[in-house]
């Protein structure tokens, strides 16, 4: 895992990027941006991540959402004909999630967890995904990002059969994968989706990195979602707030996989975040505390909290927040 981003490279990059962004900042927004760059320089120098709370419940998911949050899958490296292949093995299966005390729900998913593994590669890597379907219905893995048509993952893979998707990881940014068998809202709603992160060649500055994927559940099949969640389990991070350190740069990879609702507006309390749209830039394009995202839209958000305490995050379609898409950051005072 650590081979992925040598730490000295990341720091070098962060300096270079700070220079770049610093220039842009001075040119465009003046003193205010300068302040944030200063704050970020402070935050970026080291990364401190609070211990992950132990024994948090899985609620039937393959991994506890508390662990899943920062669980990146870099695959297995193989050498073939002088080329490095980053290989991932994915099995579509069915598992029962306990969405709340009253609702248990059969999810269809990748590798027994919703969202599926957070696949991570560097731009230009050769990626091979070996996909086996053990889930009954035909399924696929359709990746966002550049690849040839035969790797587009729309051709059904029947139960008990396997296929191999292979392509170059391009372009850098946050992408996703999901099943593309109709009715797609049902296959995605059931849990067949995951994030696919392609890091830029030089990486990004050090940060406490985590993934949040918003999802919706049409529990009774009426084409409306009754429950929503960050990382599969409704209200999970409300009941188990995510610990982060004060003044620590947090890099949030945020993806909206809610089907059946056109868009949601992610809101972070008591703070502003910098937005790297679709992760396609190395410098932020805006700063805000609300961002509206349609289905499958995703962005990198960066922020640090100045004051300790608990802070909510949720879509500002408040009915959706109150139906489970709600969580807290627990900001722990930095060690003196």
């Amino acid at each position: 895992m650590p081979e992925h981003q040598p730490i000295n490279k990341r720091i070098l990059w962060s300096r270079r990027q700070l220079l770049q962004t610093g220039l842009v900042g001075i040119g465009l927004a003046g003193a205010a941006t300068g302040f944030y760059q200063f704050q970020r320089r402070q935050a970026a120098s080291t990364v401190e991540i609070p211990p992950i709370p132990e024994n948090t419940p899985t609620e039937g998911n393959g991994l506890s959402p508390m662990v899943l949050l920062r669980n990146f899958d870099y695959g297995t490296l193989k050498q073939e004909k002088g080329r490095t292949i980053r290989e991932f093995q994915i099995i579509a299966e069915n598992t029962t999630l306990q969405l709340n005390s009253a609702v248990s729900y059969v999810s269809w998913n990748y590798n027994g967890r919703v969202p599926g593994p957070i696949l991570r590669a560097k731009e230009g890597d050769r990626v091979r995904v070996v996909f086996l379907n053990k889930s009954g219905h035909a399924h696929t893995m359709h990746f966002h990002g550049d690849h040839p048509s035969e790797m587009d993952g729309v051709r059904p893979v029947r139960n008990d059969t396997a296929t191999i998707y292979e392509f170059d990881a391009e372009p850098f940014g946050i992408h996703l994968y999901h099943c593309h068998i109709p009715p797609v809202p049902r296959h995605i709603g059931k849990g067949l989706y995951g994030m696919f992160i392609i890091d830029p060649p030089g990486g990004r500055p050090p940060a406490d990195e985590m993934v949040l994927v918003m999802g919706g559940y049409d529990v009774n099949g009426d084409q409306h979602n009754e429950l929503y969640a960050f990382n599969a389990i409704p209200n999970y991070y409300k009941e188990h707030p995510i610990p982060i350190y004060q003044d620590q740069l947090v890099r949030l990879y945020l993806l909206n996989m809610i089907e059946l609702d056109p868009a949601v507006t992610f809101h972070l309390h008591a703070n502003f975040f910098r937005v790297y749209p679709t992760g396609r830039t190395l410098t932020p394009t805006q700063e805000t505390d609300v961002i509206t995202m349609g289905t499958t839209e995703r962005h990198i958000l960066e922020f640090a909290y100045r004051f300790p305490g608990q802070y909510m995050f949720h879509p500002h379609q408040d009915a959706i927040a109150e139906a489970g898409c709600m969580g807290f950051f627990d900001v722990i005072p930095k060690k003196s």
Partner: peptide
């Protein structure tokens, strides 16, 4: 596989 996926709780 499908029968199993039909049942919860």
């Amino acid at each position: 596989a499908e029968y199993t996926a039909a049942i919860s709780d």
